[in-house]
Design a binder for these strands. Sequence first.
DNA 1: CATGAATGAGCCTTCATTCAT
DNA 2: AATGAATGAAGGCTCATTCAT
Lengths: 200, 200, 200, 200
Amino acid sequence: MTSNDTWLGKALTDRKTQILCAAQNLFAASSFRNTEVSDIANAASVSKATIYKHFASKDEILLKVVEENFQFIRDMVILRLLTGSETPLERLKAAAIDVARHLEQNKSFVHVLIKDAGECMPEIQKIHHAIMHSNSTVAEGLFKSLSKDGSIPETRSSDLLKIVSDICIGATYSWVLGDKGSLVDSVEFYFKFLFQEYRC
Amino acid sequence: MTSNDTWLGKALTDRKTQILCAAQNLFAASSFRNTEVSDIANAASVSKATIYKHFASKDEILLKVVEENFQFIRDMVILRLLTGSETPLERLKAAAIDVARHLEQNKSFVHVLIKDAGECMPEIQKIHHAIMHSNSTVAEGLFKSLSKDGSIPETRSSDLLKIVSDICIGATYSWVLGDKGSLVDSVEFYFKFLFQEYRC
Amino acid sequence: MTSNDTWLGKALTDRKTQILCAAQNLFAASSFRNTEVSDIANAASVSKATIYKHFASKDEILLKVVEENFQFIRDMVILRLLTGSETPLERLKAAAIDVARHLEQNKSFVHVLIKDAGECMPEIQKIHHAIMHSNSTVAEGLFKSLSKDGSIPETRSSDLLKIVSDICIGATYSWVLGDKGSLVDSVEFYFKFLFQEYRC
Amino acid sequence: MTSNDTWLGKALTDRKTQILCAAQNLFAASSFRNTEVSDIANAASVSKATIYKHFASKDEILLKVVEENFQFIRDMVILRLLTGSETPLERLKAAAIDVARHLEQNKSFVHVLIKDAGECMPEIQKIHHAIMHSNSTVAEGLFKSLSKDGSIPETRSSDLLKIVSDICIGATYSWVLGDKGSLVDSVEFYFKFLFQEYRC
DNA sequence: CATGAATGAGCCTTCATTCAT
DNA sequence: AATGAATGAAGGCTCATTCAT
């Protein structure tokens, strides 16, 4: 959980972390374009020159914010998919809910992602690809698990990943736009809807 | 398909339409931030001053691009939902596929929407709200139709709208990120998956 | 007197006069710099293009405003100085008061003159020179009159003209700045102060 | 005389003073309108951005030039009026001559004042009012002095102030227009003419 | 002749970035 | 290492002026 003195699990005593955390909040509150480097400097209580000691450019700050968040989430997902004694589908659901819970506690990152997608399309595409394609750790982990199992015979496992991924993306987008409700609840509902109650 | 001489059904002989069309393509190709007003002027074969005769600011150009596209889509959806002799669910599917087809032929607008979401969040939220809530024409049209029907007894119709909406948003996002495949196919697949083959 | 349908004695049915009158009022109300040609066009109820049929540039409009006003005033002064049966000093006073009265009824011209002096320094200098120096009609007229007379023996007549001129300029400047009081009264007071009551 | 390394008594080592001094000279040489911010930057040997660190806008530069000059002159007048052992009238004359001498050494400020009066009318009106009205330090100082004295029984002291003020304004205006002669000499001449030689 | 539409040159202002201290 | 001061490159916007109708 993002408390007042950590960001993605890192202590805010670290200059770099301070700057990234401040930047994320400002980008979320207005946008990358409308946030000046001096705003970040003020919010992080450092000088502009200090920022340029740690980051090569304003763009790099955004890049690092996105990279570190994505890395954090990927680690979280992989850990959840590959460990535990539940069925593969249950692990997928658990991973999705973990991510949803994390985003719910880091809404500012989602805002950054949506508002400034244009500035970090390559990063977004990279992780999207990394999750979706079978030569990625995430997808491989899931597919191997499922192939051992017999739970989803009618659907190819790559289709399943896409369905879950798309509906989670949509749910997240809606959640940010609507600015109310619980993302975790939405994701849980969708899993029930897709795989449990409404299915034979 | 968007031919070379119309934009959202309007003739490109109109100066304003020329400018909006050029702007949309440039915003999509790079981004709002990285597009200069003079680029738009060149692309639309008019002078900068002419642009400022038609729009109060650069921001307003983006706003109008988004507004006019949304209006076009809304009209398309409403028409499809409220007319025709199919069942309500079939009409919802048809509307979704119409939108998907339109977006597939206007991919540049989707790029603008995703890349520059931060610049037009209010507009996006407005239409999202307008579609999702029962006092809107879209939602009312669907709900009334469904209540007359008995097709989806287990699910509240507002849930249905949210499911379809979220999965379409997610599909659209993925489609743009992946930069290949057909959005129409995705949407058709999801409708089948949700409501036909895989259900009892 | 500037009534609603004449400007410096010319009928406002004439396009050029319409434009000059409108321009003078606008320049006075804000300033040359802050008045756009389109403002003048609107005020004169003509199009911008029509203005450029009558004047080569915006600068020329200001020039003509100043020139025509100065010409009008010069004619008025000369007529008053050279005709009439009063003593030369009385005629000088009468001329000064005539000018004061005219300016009081054309305050907008004084505003233009003060606000936009920087744009028409050459014209102002030209008339200032024309009035002050003995090879000008004004000065010659006065000097000839005074030399026939013996009224101001202690003062050279060019000094007298400068005193009267300077004090009238100062009075006019103050009158515009103070935005109240009567310029005619001021000028009359100064003539009394300088030449009658307070002198032996 | 304004030496090369001070402006209104302030060292030109100060950035703000450098900028104001450069601006005053440029405004005087051409005009506010025709002076670009980059001209000021070049003349002051700083960058445009530095100018905007010190002043909010180009307009503010002109405002400060006028304000600081007026403040300097007011202080000079007040000091001269209120101190010294001469008679009040002599002190008024001395103050007027001090101002004349200052302006003669700062002709560029007078040029600014006359050329760009339209841009700083409020400031000009403010100081004119401050000098002329009895609740101002300047006027009060003079009036109190005169009332103790019996030197000008025939004239109300506020009339006196207006006469002196107007004739000095006129003399200054003429001096700038004529572009030759000494302002100090003019003012001395007028004081003699008004109060000494020519009076009984 | 009158005009609405179009323009291009140019200005003010901003802001990411650097550097001397 | 940290900073305050300085900057240059660039962009949004304006407005006097022109031209086809």
